[in-house]
Computed example of a mutant assay.
Amino acid sequence: MNKAGMLKALAATAMVSALTLGLAGPASADGSVTWKNGKTQWYLASSPNGGGVTTTNYYWHWQDIQNSDGTWNEVDQFGNCLTGYGSQAYTEKCNSGRDGTNPYQRWREINTGSGWKLQNVQSGGFLDESGSGSGYGSVYVNGTDWNNQNQRWY
């Protein structure tokens, strides 16, 4: 193979690798993830005893567990599941194992090409952050898909 042919082959391999890596992200496999808000750049966080969720300026790890229906459980560091009920987002005790949760505790992870939208299975609403960026943000489920950075998670 001549030099030009070798360069074309390397470029094609690099492009395929870049495309493959570009599709990977938090929703790519079961495991530990952090969810960082696209607007505020703060991380989704919870409290030890369940209850409301918020955002914070330090890493907060969640366990991403895929169910057989393609949805995901988001389990916090204390074993509680991210739950959406109406417009409320909070954590509560759950059977976090694969297929062990109810529709309120299941989320669709939708790749937007510039992050992820987390859509609650029961309500169809999207995990949203108030976007204040001036401290701990208010996290809730928004019934309207604004397709904006407040609803984008990385």
Rank of each mutant, 00 (worst) to 15 (best):
Q105G: 02
G125A: 09
K39L: 10
L44W: 11
S114N: 12
S28P: 02
T144R: 15
K8F: 14
A9K: 13
Y90K: 05
T144G: 09
Q88M: 06
Y90V: 01
T20V: 11
S28I: 04
N57R: 08
N95V: 09
N73F: 05
K3C: 14
Y154E: 05
S114R: 12
Y136Q: 13
N111K: 10
L10Q: 13
P103D: 03
T13A: 15
N102S: 07
S68P: 02
A27R: 06
W60L: 00
G100N: 04
Y140I: 04
N73H: 07
F126R: 07
N80I: 00
T56K: 01
E92Q: 13
R108L: 08
N148Y: 03
W153R: 03
T144S: 15
W116R: 10
D64G: 02
K39Y: 01
T112V: 07
M15F: 13
N67K: 04
L7W: 13
T56F: 01
S130N: 15
A24L: 14
G31H: 01
N57W: 02
G22N: 11
L118E: 03
P48K: 07
T101M: 05
T20E: 13
Q63T: 12
S123E: 12
E109N: 11
A4Q: 15
L21I: 12
R152E: 09
W153E: 03
T101G: 03
L7E: 15
A24I: 07
T20C: 13
Y43P: 00
M6N: 14
V121Y: 09
T71H: 06
M15S: 12
A24T: 08
L21F: 14
S17H: 07
W146S: 11
N37T: 06
S138G: 09
K3A: 15
F126A: 05
V139K: 04
G143P: 09
G86I: 01
F126H: 08
N95I: 06
A11T: 15
V121T: 10
D145K: 08
N37R: 06
Q119P: 05
N142A: 11
R152W: 03
N102E: 07
K3E: 15
K39S: 08
P26T: 08
S47V: 10
N67H: 08
V16K: 10
Q88A: 09
W72S: 02
S132L: 11
C94W: 02
T34E: 03
H61I: 06
D30Q: 09
Q41A: 08
N111L: 05
S68T: 14
G25S: 10
D99E: 04
N150I: 04
A27G: 14
S17C: 12
R108F: 12
Y154P: 00
S32H: 02
N57L: 01
P103E: 04
W42R: 12
